[in-house]
Design a protein around this nucleic acid. Structure first.
Lengths: 214, 214
DNA sequence: CATACTTGGATAGTGCCGGTACCCAACAAG
DNA sequence: CTTGTTGGGTACCGGCACTATCCAAGTATG
């Protein structure tokens, strides 16, 4: 398959494919001569994966490149590849440690993890981007005067834990390590928009049930 | 309070505040004379709300303006104000109706809603951005060859419904309509990053429980 | 064999977005 | 009176994800 066909089958313009090749998101095709290269089904699959990450997952191009680098790195074990890839997902700006709301948020989130018995998360917390994002979000709520802490978050955390159990159960249905890692990364990237959409649909449903259409 | 103080207490530069004023995200201050205006605590609060939406919720400036417009519109009832504001949240590109994966995704999502008995969501579906986002995400999975449909989504949807119930219960703890709407919009905007962060923390926790740190 | 098209490679340009910088005359504060 | 700040305006910035154009070398078609 040559560039034009790859473009047609993926729905991505040749100019954009060239851009991805330049940026290293797609491996170069098999060079037939100085002006022709041959692509295969693997390229098409990779291209679809890249598009899904960018368009559905809204990852920046540079991040997609990093994520793919970890997914492809055979020198790492499964857990490390997975962790490394997930660690890169969109982050929020570093919280300002001097801010009083941020300090209070740190305490609330710490209390939450203790209360839930999430000892591993507690241990990973200082490094984890997810922990930082949570602190930033909680601080924003508190800055606006809402009581928002361990108490209010615990039931949500419980539900999210059950979601994570589903995620890993789904992942384990895939046979090979490589497939598991790809599925997990995809899950992390594409499942989030899916969950967000389901969440909003559920809000619409429940809201109409309670208050009607008026 | 004048511009400089508003800037200091919010941590937002005067240039940026002027930009928000220009864009209509903040109402103008009380004009004392041609070169002085007075701002109050309401401006500070609104500014913090705007910042939270932009930085934590990652909403584009133009969307923030629209959302605030609906929140402030007293001519609408509670449900409508809420719905109108939520409808604006970040959307995914319109799915291509000609695509076979998109068609299959439509069917799967429809089957899911039937199976769950979400009749209101089913009815709203053609209009709902959340529905469209879900279809796009499911189509992306299927394009990559994963079996991803009503079967796999149902348990997630169940959990998201329980999350939505929590959301609305929390909202109802606020006394006035105006507060309920503000809290709900904030919830939709700030709770999503919160849920995402909790989800990832839960994944880290559960993943370490199953596979250890190796 | 002629002609039109395609290839990889390179470079420059586009449009949007969230600010930022600078200038101004009018006013305020010490 | 001097120094700084105000609202208002305009111009500009850097980052991002492409997109357009050009090129010489090679390919497909009649």
């Amino acid at each position: 398959m040559r560039l034009a066909e790859l473009s047609e089958r993926s729905g991505v313009s040749t100019a954009t494919i060239k851009y991805y090749l330049r940026e290293g998101l797609l491996p170069p095709g098999r060079q037939i001569n100085r002006t022709t290269a041959e692509y295969d089904e693997e390229h098409l699959r990779r291209l679809r994966l890249v598009r899904a990450m960018i368009q559905v997952g809204r990852l920046p191009v540079a991040t997609v490149k990093e994520v793919l680098g970890h997914v492809d790195d055979d020198s790492l074990g499964r857990t490390m590849r997975l962790g490394a890839a997930l660690w890169l997902l969109p982050q929020v700006a570093e919280p300002d440690a001097d801010d009083e709301y941020v300090r209070a948020a740190h305490e609330e989130v710490g209390a939450l993890l203790d209360r839930l018995g999430w000892h591993n998360a507690r241990q990973l917390a200082p490094l984890s981007p997810a922990y930082r994002s949570l602190v930033v979000a909680v601080a924003a709520f508190r800055r606006l005067g809402y009581a928002w802490g361990a108490e209010q978050l615990a039931p949500y955390a419980e539900l999210m834990h059950r979601t994570a159990v589903l995620d890993l159960d789904n992942m384990e249905t895939h046979p090979s390590d490589a497939e598991q890692v790809e599925f997990a990364v995809l899950g992390a990237i594409l499942n989030e928009p899916t969950l967000r959409a389901l969440h909003r649909l559920a809000q619409e449903e429940e809201s109409v049930r309670r208050y009607g259409f008026a």
